[in-house]
Design a protein around this nucleic acid. Structure first.
Lengths: 186, 186
DNA sequence: TGGTACATGTACCACTTGGTACACGAGGGG
DNA sequence: CCCCTCGTGTACCAAGTGGTACATGTACCA
C-alpha cells in the first residue's frame, strides 16, 4: 500500500510545499533542504529544475481536474453551480489555487516548463462543462458559451477571493449570478 | 519637455520590456543590458532589485487605472460594458495584461515587492464601478455586487483570452453575459 | 555468494546573482 | 575658477545557483 516510489513522494511533497510558499524564489537547494533531502536528489529524480517544474505543473493540473471530477452532475444547473462553487471555496484548496494562478501567470509569460498548462487550462474544463450543459438540455453551442462564461466567473471570483479573503462578498456575487443568470437557463 | 528624468524613462522602458518578456528569470543585469544600461544604473535609481519591482508594480497598476479612467460612462449599462470590454481586448494591451496577471500570481504567493498590488487589485476598481452602477439607478448594495461580478467576468474571460487567443469565443461569452444579465439590470 | 540496479550523500565546478567601491565627466552656482 | 551634485561606467565581491563526478549504501535476484 504505502508505495515505495520516492519520486512520487518527493513530487507530492514538493507541490504541497510550493503551494504554501510559491514557486518563485525557491531554488533547488532551498526546496530540497526544506523537504529534507539534498538538491542532488531532485536532479536525480527530475533531471533538472525545469523538469521538476514540468512535473509540478502536471500535478497541479491533475489536482484541479480531480476537483472537477468529483462534481455531482445531478440537480438543477443552479444547484450544480452552487455545489461547484462551494467546493472551490474550501479554504483547504486555497494553496493549490494560489499555485495554479501563479503558474498560470508565468505560463502566460512563457516561462519554460510551464507552457504545458496553457492549452489545457481552458479546454480541459470545457469538455466536462459542455457535457453537463447538454445533459440539462442546452444546445452544443449554448453549452459551450455558458461553460466558458461559468468558468470565467468562477476564476474571476476566485482571484478576488484569494486577494481580498472576503468570502462573504464573493459568495454574494456568485449567488447573484447563479440566481439571476444560471437559474434562467434550461 | 520630455527630457530630464532618466529614472522615469528607465522605469517606463523597464515595464514595457517586462511586459513583453515576463518578470521571472529576468535579473537586474539581463534587464539592464537589454535596456542598454548597466545594472549599476538600476540599483542607483531604484535602490535594489526589490525597489525596482515595487515601482514596476506601481506603474502596472497606474496603467490599469488609466484604462479604467478613459471609460465613457454614458449610455446603457450594456453599452458601457461592451465598450469597456472592447477596450480591454485591444491586442496592444495584451502585454500589460499578461504582466498584470503574472504579478498578481506572484503577489498571491507573497513575493516581496508585489504585495502592494493585492489590496488595490480589487478595491481600486470597485469604487468607480459602483459609482457607475449607482448612476444607472442601482442601490449601493446591488451596485457593489454587480461591480464585483462584472470584474470577475472580465478578468476571467481575459485569462481565457490570453491563454487561448480565441477572441471570438470570449467575445461570444461576454456578449451572452451582457445581453442576458447586464441588459436586465436597471 | 556475488552482482547489479536503484537511491542517496559529499564534494566540487563554473557561472550568475544582487550589491558595493570608486573613479570620472558634465553642468551649474559661488 | 573651484566645488559639488548628478548620472554613469568599470571593476570587484561574497553568496548562491544549477549541474556533475564519484563513492557509497541497500535490496533483490541469479
Amino acid at each position: 500500500m504505502e508505495r515505495k516510489d520516492p519520486r512520487r513522494d518527493l513530487l507530492e511533497r514538493a507541490v504541497d510545499y510550493l503551494s504554501e510558499h510559491g514557486v518563485i524564489a525557491r531554488s533547488l537547494r532551498q526546496l530540497a533542504a526544506e523537504l529534507g533531502t539534498s538538491h542532488r536528489m531532485l536532479i536525480y529524480h527530475f533531471g533538472s529544475m525545469e523538469g521538476l517544474l514540468v512535473e509540478v505543473v502536471r500535478e497541479v493540473e491533475a489536482r484541479q481536474r480531480a476537483v472537477l471530477a468529483d462534481l455531482d452532475p445531478t440537480g438543477s444547473p443552479a444547484d450544480v453551480a452552487k455545489a461547484f462553487w462551494r467546493r472551490f471555496t474550501d479554504p483547504a484548496l486555497y494553496p493549490n489555487e494560489r499555485l495554479f494562478f501563479e503558474l498560470y501567470g508565468q505560463a502566460l509569460q512563457g516561462r519554460p516548463g510551464t507552457e504545458a498548462l496553457l492549452p489545457e487550462v481552458v479546454t480541459a474544463w470545457l469538455g466536462p462543462l459542455v457535457a453537463l450543459g447538454k445533459s440539462h438540455g442546452l444546445s452544443e453551442r449554448d453549452a459551450l458559451v455558458n461553460a466558458r462564461l461559468g468558468m470565467a466567473v468562477t476564476r474571476g471570483l476566485l482571484l478576488d477571493l484569494l486577494a481580498t479573503g472576503d468570502l462573504e462578498a464573493v459568495n454574494e456575487a456568485m449567488d447573484r449570478f447563479v440566481d439571476t443568470y444560471v437559474a434562467g437557463l434550461p
